[in-house]
């Protein structure tokens, strides 16, 4: 039987390397892909992976069940770490040119996280429905982790516009996602 993340995590706390390895194997691809979305750079993404697992192993980041699902927690750690790594690089400008454009990568294979497989295709589909400027603001705000101030400067819009655009983009995404869910997900066709 597969061990639960929480049980594995408890073993990690006692210094069980195999437990950390199991968690690593389970989340490697998701976290790496996510870091890559943020950093857009392979070496930086690997640096993120290393910092994430270092934080878990050395217990600089600790999990307990009141924090919700383990998967959400580890993703959050990865997100802040990735944003942190990205911010440390002096020149972020290249990141600003990034559009949402999804590369034609293949879908996750069956052994990958079920949640990712299920939600991922729906969210990507929902993202496609958003106007370009809303896609961009989500990219900058969420994935690139830019402050609203920086977004305002870079897009040359007011701080108020940044706020309302983030708000609208997230609401719209939620709405599009609901429509897709109602249709029963993304068809394979």
């Amino acid at each position: 039987m597969k061990e639960r993340d929480y049980d594995l995590y408890q073993k990690i706390l006692t210094g069980d390397k195999h437990a950390l390895e199991k968690i690593y194997d389970k989340y490697e691809k998701l976290l790496y892909s996510f870091a890559y979305k943020t950093c857009g750079h392979r070496e930086m993404s690997e640096e993120v992976m290393q910092e994430v697992f270092m934080k878990i192993w050395t217990q600089k980041a600790t999990y307990d069940e009141t924090k919700g699902k383990f998967s959400s927690w580890i993703i959050t750690i990865a997100r802040y770490t990735a944003i942190d790594v990205l911010r440390k690089k002096e020149n972020q400008n290249y990141a600003l040119d990034e559009e949402w454009d999804a590369p034609n990568e293949k879908e996750p294979s069956v052994e990958d996280l079920v949640e990712w497989k299920e939600r991922g295709s729906m969210i990507r589909e929902a993202m496609k429905q958003l106007p370009k400027e809303q896609k961009k603001i989500i990219m900058l705000f969420y994935f690139k982790g830019l402050t609203q101030q920086r977004i305002a400067e870079n897009l040359d819009i007011s701080l108020g516009t940044v706020k309302s655009r983030i708000r609208l983009a997230l609401k719209r995404l939620k709405k599009e996602l609901a429509i897709i869910e109602e249709k029963g997900g993304v068809s394979d066709a």
């Binding site: 998701l30 790496y32 993404s45 993703i75 939600r119 969210i123 969420y142």
Partner: peptide, 11 residues
């Protein structure tokens, strides 16, 4: 949900 929007990239 947004993290799941990341396209799979082979490590």
């Amino acid at each position: 949900d947004l993290p799941f929007a990341a396209e799979p990239v082979d490590p």
